[in-house]
Amino acid sequence: MRIVFAGTPEFAVPALRACATRGEVVAVYTQPDRPAGRGRQLQMSPVKQAALELGLPVQQPLNFKSEEALAILRSHEADLMVVVAYGLILPQTVLDMPRLGCWNVHASLLPRWRGAAPIQRAIAAGDTVSGVCLMQMEKGLDTGPVLLQLKTPIGPKDTGGSLHDRLSQLGAEVLRDGLTLARAGMTLQAEAQPEAGVSYARKIDKAEAKLAWSLSAKALADQIRAFNPWPVAETELQGERVRVYQAQILAEDSGKPPGTVLAAGKAGIDIACGQGVLRLLALQRDGGRVQSASEYLNARPLTF
């Protein structure tokens, strides 16, 4: 089988490696190198780095609007195109090109959380289960029929980072399962997504990182977990901006206005919420390292 792989971030790397184990990947498509870091140096995507390590040819078109880009893709004579967090919407011309069409690995249990940020949205919404879907792509946004899926629970200590890593590995696993069946000449059963339960995981905006203390302690704790390690929840503690990496829900209501610091000590920093109390456990001040609330207070005691 001749496979074209398209992906960009770290999430897609295990899936690329799963595709490449039998020498079937004839080309890897990824986003163009872009400036990053303080020096704004051009950096390769994680998928490009992995592809070069594997000795695979790399293509980085801006899009597929030009006949040249389409001709190059057509020249690979792909049986299948596998797409994992590529970052481009593929036109129908591309979707129709491979013999078996295009497969997508998506990090949610469709139709819940279609779109750009399914991992963070699932945690922030308080979901207790997530998973990955292998989907036959069509022109709509994550609307195609599902071929295979794998589930995983979302634990109370899961963060956006831990769930990302687990789903990345599950994505490679569900893709391996699909490829095994396709190589055996079996037709995967495509199940149309139900119309009920559709939700959209819009792209994360950094402005969402600011904690709104009028919300419940549960909602804020879920937001903190979802936004760790990016964009990281933030708040102000008596005039200083801090980023919050870890917190704990305290059940009792304080009766104090939301945002009031109730206690600050070795156990953490307790803050009144719209409902319940949230204890901040791990913080980072601007330019500093992540530290426990106790360490933070040693350097900057709070008055209340």
Rank of each mutant, 00 (worst) to 15 (best):
A196R: 14
Q136A: 14
L262H: 07
G131W: 03
P153Y: 08
G185F: 13
K266Y: 01
R241A: 05
A219S: 10
S199W: 08
P153L: 06
T187V: 14
P145E: 03
I204R: 00
E252K: 15
I271F: 02
D253C: 04
Q169V: 09
A184N: 13
K206Q: 11
H164E: 14
E234Q: 10
V242S: 03
E236I: 09
V132E: 04
L262F: 12
R241K: 08
L148S: 07
V242H: 04
P153A: 12
C273G: 02
D177T: 07
K203N: 11
E252R: 15
V132S: 01
G155Y: 14
E234Y: 09
Q248L: 06
L147Y: 00
P231Q: 00
L134G: 00
R202K: 03
C273W: 07
P231L: 02
G255K: 04
G155F: 04
R241W: 06
A267V: 11
G274D: 00
G185H: 10
Q275I: 06
H164Y: 15
L141T: 13
T180S: 11
D142L: 08
K151Y: 14
P258E: 00
G178W: 03
I154Y: 12
A184R: 11
L163C: 05
G160Q: 09
D253L: 01
D222M: 04
M135S: 00
K206A: 06
P258H: 01
L220V: 15
G265L: 12
R176C: 08
L175I: 04
A267Y: 10
P145I: 12
Y200P: 05
P231V: 03
L147M: 08
R166I: 05
G161W: 05
R225F: 04
I249T: 10
L170P: 07
L150E: 07
L215C: 11
L141S: 15
G131S: 10
V261R: 09
S168R: 06
G160P: 07
R225N: 13
G131I: 02
L163F: 04
V242Q: 13
T235W: 05
L211I: 10
A192P: 12
P257A: 05
V198R: 06
E195L: 13
Q248Y: 06
I269E: 02
L148D: 12
A263S: 10
R243W: 13
V244W: 11
K210C: 10
D222H: 08
L170R: 05
Q193V: 02
L167M: 06
L147E: 08
L167P: 00
S216A: 08
D205I: 09
A192V: 05
K210R: 13
G171W: 07
A217F: 02
Q193H: 07
R166C: 10
L181D: 12
